[in-house]
Amino acid sequence: MGQDAQGFRYVERGDGSVVIHHHGRVAATLRGGRAAEFLAEIDDDPQLVMARWTGNYRRGNERTARQHPRNRG
Results as ranks from 00 to 15, higher is better:
residue 51 A to M: 05
residue 67 Q to N: 11
residue 48 L to C: 03
residue 13 R to A: 14
residue 23 H to E: 14
residue 26 V to D: 05
residue 68 H to M: 08
residue 18 V to Y: 03
residue 59 R to K: 10
residue 53 W to R: 11
residue 20 I to R: 13
residue 4 D to T: 13
residue 31 R to C: 14
residue 10 Y to L: 09
residue 8 F to C: 13
residue 9 R to C: 09
residue 31 R to E: 15
residue 39 L to R: 14
residue 45 D to V: 08
residue 17 S to H: 13
residue 8 F to V: 02
residue 27 A to D: 09
residue 60 G to L: 07
residue 7 G to F: 06
residue 53 W to H: 12
residue 67 Q to L: 14
residue 18 V to T: 09
residue 69 P to T: 00
residue 35 A to G: 10
residue 19 V to L: 07
residue 25 R to W: 12
residue 72 R to N: 03
residue 34 R to M: 06
residue 69 P to K: 04
residue 22 H to P: 01
residue 47 Q to S: 09
residue 5 A to D: 05
residue 58 R to K: 08
residue 30 L to V: 11
residue 29 T to M: 02
residue 13 R to M: 14
residue 15 D to C: 11
residue 26 V to H: 08
residue 19 V to S: 02
residue 6 Q to I: 08
residue 7 G to A: 09
residue 73 G to S: 09
residue 26 V to F: 00
residue 72 R to I: 00
residue 72 R to G: 03
residue 58 R to I: 13
residue 67 Q to Y: 07
residue 42 I to Q: 10
residue 59 R to N: 00
residue 1 M to P: 15
residue 50 M to S: 05
residue 63 R to V: 11
residue 66 R to V: 02
residue 35 A to L: 11
residue 10 Y to D: 13
residue 59 R to Y: 01
residue 12 E to M: 12
residue 28 A to G: 01
residue 65 A to S: 07
residue 57 Y to E: 13
residue 38 F to S: 07
residue 73 G to K: 12
residue 68 H to R: 07
residue 55 G to K: 04
residue 51 A to I: 00
residue 50 M to A: 00
residue 32 G to K: 02
residue 56 N to Q: 12
residue 12 E to P: 05
residue 32 G to C: 05
residue 46 P to C: 09
residue 70 R to S: 01
residue 11 V to Q: 07
residue 23 H to K: 12
residue 48 L to Y: 02
residue 29 T to S: 07
residue 72 R to V: 01
residue 58 R to T: 08
residue 17 S to W: 12
residue 35 A to E: 09
residue 16 G to A: 09
residue 21 H to L: 06
residue 52 R to A: 04
residue 39 L to T: 02
residue 56 N to Y: 13
residue 44 D to Y: 10
residue 34 R to H: 14
residue 27 A to C: 10
residue 10 Y to R: 15
residue 58 R to M: 15
residue 16 G to T: 06
residue 27 A to W: 06
residue 4 D to Y: 02
residue 13 R to T: 15
residue 35 A to M: 08
residue 45 D to T: 10
residue 54 T to I: 00
residue 17 S to F: 10
residue 17 S to P: 11
residue 42 I to T: 05
residue 29 T to R: 10
residue 6 Q to F: 13
residue 5 A to F: 12
residue 18 V to D: 02
residue 41 E to C: 08
residue 65 A to L: 15
residue 67 Q to P: 01
residue 68 H to I: 00
residue 35 A to N: 13
residue 17 S to V: 09
residue 18 V to L: 05
residue 57 Y to S: 12
residue 62 E to P: 05
residue 36 A to W: 03
residue 42 I to D: 04
residue 6 Q to R: 04
residue 39 L to Y: 11
residue 10 Y to H: 15
residue 6 Q to L: 15
residue 46 P to Q: 09
residue 37 E to L: 11
residue 40 A to F: 01
residue 50 M to I: 03
residue 38 F to Y: 15
residue 3 Q to Y: 10
residue 61 N to K: 06
residue 5 A to P: 05
